[in-house]
């Protein structure tokens, strides 16, 4: 079970800024271990962010994204107290959803 994400969401005027820190190995599948064996690929493939049930961000990621990725984005809308949910799914089918309250 992956570590929980750290999510911060703040609204200023009509724009909400969301910052997400995810815990994930993001292994590219190109590296070899000390014995010369390829370390299997293991990375987040999709990220979705919803606000009040609406999708505000949908992303498809690949192996170029680094380990323990940090995602920062803004969307129009949001009010103090609203919930923002972030979900990621990786190439092994593992997923994680965490939520934050807009401050």
């Amino acid at each position: 079970m992956a570590d929980p994400m750290k999510i911060r969401a703040n609204v200023t005027g009509d724009t909400t800024e969301v910052k997400v820190l995810m815990s994930h190995e993001m292994e590219t599948g190109q590296r070899k271990d000390a014995q010369g064996k390829t370390i299997p690929a293991w990375f987040i493939q999709s990220v979705t962010a919803t606000w009040n049930g609406n999708t505000v961000l949908a992303a498809q990621w690949g192996p170029a994204v680094s380990k323990n990725p940090f995602l920062s984005f803004k969307f129009k809308g949001g009010a103090k107290g609203d919930k923002v949910l972030i979900t990621w799914v990786d190439n092994r089918g593992d997923k994680r959803t965490d939520e934050a309250t807009i401050a």
């Binding site: 570590d3 929980p4 750290k6 910052k19 820190l21 815990s23 380990k67 323990n68 940090f70 995602l71 920062s72």
Partner: peptide, 12 residues
Amino acid sequence: QDGNPAELWEAR
């Protein structure tokens, strides 16, 4: 500097 993964270690 923004989004330091160290925060994940601090929480754990």
